[in-house]
Design a protein around this nucleic acid. Structure first.
Lengths: 300, 300
DNA sequence: ATCATTTGATCGGGAATACGGATGAATCTT
DNA sequence: AAGATTCATCCGTATTCCCGATCAAATGAT
């Protein structure tokens, strides 16, 4: 069984024109080529589809039988292709991106808005989750890619470096550290500090940087907004990456860079190895990569 | 837009095999040819449909999108073709034949039964009607062909001679004519006779044969069965073609040939000019033609 | 680290197919 | 009767298609 859309188109054209020469013209074919095309269709079908003399062209009963299905098939075909091309043109589609909460709240929204403005037909989904769930979502294919930190055990994921996010100290204006000029991480941690949850990338990063010397935190909270509140209330200090600072730019709080070798949190775009993204997904991926946060501190 | 079933089949094969070499084998193609076929489909679609490395073949998001429609299209195509081939093989179809009442009751049924036994999938329809409606049905395309007599004004119909149907006299055993040896038509018509309706082919034929000399009939009835009853009741004689005699073979009735030049009623298979019959229709047409009633009198 | 294996892509020549112009045959019109 | 229209056929050319061989990349075993 071999049937091409050219044959079906020729068939329909001939049904409508009832004239080989005109139908051929409509299909951008010479009359002999068109005639052969109809014959090939009849051969395929095993039945004569048209009664033709030099003066009349008419559907046979069997040709009539084919007419409905032929039109249906043609529209189905063109719908299928159009649907694909729509996806390709990002007029439709769906992109699911996983992002660390710190990024999902600050950096990401504006870019998502820009993407949406450009491709309004694409449905966007953001999973704001801490590192482990983020990576799981990508590994399971539920998210197209993630904006997150790396983890050692990512065998079937691959990361594209996006940004090095340096850490800052946040404390209250009246805190003793607020007036100091150069603050090392170790010094800061002598004070009571408020940590994010153990499975958050910020916390993991800090613990990795300090090794066993990490002093226990005063409090562990899930959301950065809570951290803000606690610092403002004078419960302690916080150590957070630059990209979350927008949450702390509030009166009464002081943001100070840390001196010394404090490794930055390295952020990546993370996707499945050997898997291409959907066209829409790739477009967002590229947009995010091209708009990696500027790096004021110059740390790579 | 040009899309062939070969491309779709290749696509589905690759989706299922996830391996070019095996999928190519399944399509009875070499691997390079198969590869090119997939590429042509991707070109047509405008999207990459598979992620392929030398080790893995996987559907892209767009490929996934196509999978459902591809399978649907393939089954629709093969259904359409199968339907046509069924018609060609007379496994399906519909034949509508118009026949004069005299034929529809006597000669036709057995042949229809034979046809039906051979092609049980074909629906049969018989219009038993007098000459004018018979021809109209064919002219309007509502019947595929008719078994009937000709009429002068059949410009767009064409007739294939089937059978010359000689006339016989039917009368009661105790009728004076019953014992006569040679009876001429004119002699017979001196007796009261029972005629069929004016628009019946039998009546038309008689009037044409006799010209203005046609004596008026005693009675005009629509159905031959009524004629039988009337003759049996002694109301008069009847003049009917041989093919209707089965209706008169009853005790107490005598059937006698007419001597002299009595033109036979000429029966034809009548179809639209320059129109092919459906495959099933042609088959029945041929069957009827091949089984034209034997002609005992030898009259053409 | 090195090498053999697997597998998809590419290349090149030969076969099959498709195409268009000219021609032929049938039919309708004038 | 002649001309016009139109579909089928023929035939030389151009294109496409297909296969075998080869290449290149990735993988896995040693």
């Amino acid at each position: 069984m071999n049937l091409s859309s050219r044959q079906l188109k020729a068939f329909v054209a001939l049904v409508e024109e009832r004239n080989f020469t005109r139908a051929a013209k409509r299909c951008h074919l010479s009359q002999p080529a068109f005639s052969a095309l109809i014959q090939s269709l009849e051969q395929e079908a095993g039945v004569r589809l048209f009664d033709r003399s030099t003066r009349h062209v008419d559907l046979t009963a069997e040709g009539h039988e084919l007419e409905t299905s032929a039109r249906g098939l043609l529209t189905d075909m063109s719908l299928a292709l159009e649907n694909l091309r729509d996806h390709a043109a990002k007029r439709r589609g769906r992109v699911s991106v996983a992002a660390l909460p710190s990024l999902a709240a600050g950096w990401l929204p504006e870019l998502l808005a820009r993407f949406h403005e450009r491709y309004p037909g694409v449905t966007l989904q953001v999973h704001d989750a801490v590192l482990d769930p983020c990576l799981d979502l990508v590994a399971r294919g539920e998210a197209d890619f993630a904006v997150a930190a790396l983890r050692p055990d990512m065998s079937d994921l691959e990361g594209q470096f996006l940004h090095a996010d340096p850490f800052f100290l946040v404390c209250r204006q009246d805190h003793p550290l607020a007036s100091r000029d150069r603050i090392r991480l170790r010094d800061a941690l002598k004070w009571p500090w408020i940590a994010t949850a153990r499975n958050s990338s910020v916390r993991k990063h800090l613990e990795q940087a300090l090794g066993d010397e990490t002093p226990s935190a005063l409090l562990e909270v899930a959301h950065l907004a809570t951290v803000t509140g606690l610092v403002k209330a004078g419960m302690g200090i916080a150590l957070v990456p630059a990209m979350t600072l927008f949450q702390f730019e509030r009166p009464g709080l002081v943001i100070k860079p840390l001196s010394g070798r404090v490794p930055a949190r390295r952020l990546y775009l993370i996707r499945r190895r050997r898997r291409s993204l959907s066209v829409a997904g790739q477009a967002l991926y590229d947009l995010l990569l091209a708009n990696a946060p500027s790096n004021p501190s110059g740390v790579e």
